[in-house]
Amino acid sequence: MNEILDIVALVLVLIGALLCLTAAIGLLRFHDVPTRLHAATKPQVLGFILICIAVALALRAWPVVAFLVPVVVIQLATAPLSAHMVGRQAYRNGTIDERSLLVDELAEARRTPPAAGG
């Protein structure tokens, strides 16, 4: 049984590392902010979770699981928040191609001066 868990952990680390690698390649290859945000958050977070599961399987100790669960929860909470803040700032700076947006919910707030409450 231990050998099977070690093989599963090895496969999970390999898949997680490949997902993190694709996230890094996506950050380098994609041209605009929204696609880079997708590359930075989605495969990176999934790869990180798979690696944490692999570590828990390889070490087979409850203290390790108790340590990794908050780490994964914090990662799941902070990755979308940071991506949202980066995307919002890119929109405010005008570095997002507005023609590529299907719906622009912030267009009215952008036209309103900040002192007017918008």
Score class of each variant (00 low, 15 high):
Met1Val: 12
Met1Arg: 10
Ile4Pro: 01
Leu5Asp: 13
Ile7Glu: 11
Leu10Ser: 10
Leu10Glu: 10
Leu10Trp: 08
Val11Cys: 05
Val13Gly: 06
Leu14Cys: 04
Leu14Gln: 05
Ile15Ala: 15
Ile15Trp: 13
Gly16Pro: 04
Gly16His: 04
Gly16Trp: 06
Ala17Ser: 14
Leu19Val: 03
Leu19Arg: 03
Cys20Glu: 08
Cys20Pro: 00
Ala23Cys: 02
Ala24Pro: 01
Gly26His: 03
Gly26Ser: 01
Leu27Val: 02
Leu28Asn: 11
Leu28Trp: 10
Arg29Gln: 14
Arg29Leu: 13
Arg29Asp: 12
Phe30Cys: 04
Val33Gln: 09
Pro34Ala: 11
Pro34Leu: 11
Arg36Gly: 00
Arg36Ala: 06
Leu37Arg: 04
Leu37Met: 14
Leu37Phe: 12
His38Ile: 09
Ala39Asn: 03
Ala39Leu: 10
Ala40Trp: 12
Ala40Met: 00
Ala40Glu: 02
Lys42Pro: 02
Pro43Gly: 08
Pro43Asp: 10
Pro43Ser: 05
Gln44Tyr: 09
Leu46Arg: 00
Gly47Asn: 03
Gly47Lys: 06
Phe48Gly: 12
Phe48Arg: 02
Ile49Leu: 14
Leu50Phe: 15
Leu50Ile: 02
Cys52Asn: 14
Ile53Ala: 14
Ile53Glu: 05
Ala56Thr: 04
Leu57Ile: 05
Ala58Gly: 13
Leu59Tyr: 07
Leu59Ile: 13
Trp62Phe: 13
Val64Met: 15
Phe67Ala: 15
Leu68Ile: 11
Val69Thr: 13
Pro70Cys: 08
Val71Asn: 12
Val72Gln: 07
Val72Arg: 02
Ile74Arg: 01
Gln75Leu: 03
Ala77Ser: 01
Thr78Tyr: 11
Ala79Met: 09
Leu81Lys: 03
Leu81Trp: 12
Ser82Gln: 08
Ser82Asp: 02
Ser82Leu: 07
Ala83Tyr: 07
Met85Thr: 10
Val86Tyr: 01
Tyr91Asp: 05
Tyr91Lys: 09
Tyr91Pro: 02
Gly94Pro: 09
Gly94Asp: 12
Ile96Thr: 05
Asp97Lys: 08
Glu98Phe: 11
Arg99Ser: 11
Arg99Pro: 02
Leu101Ile: 07
Leu102Val: 14
Leu102Trp: 15
Val103Trp: 12
Asp104Ala: 11
Asp104Phe: 06
Glu105Asn: 07
Ala107Cys: 02
Ala107Lys: 15
Glu108Ile: 04
Ala109Asp: 10
Ala109Val: 02
Pro114Ala: 10
Pro114Thr: 04
Ala115Met: 07
Ala116Val: 02
Gly117Lys: 08
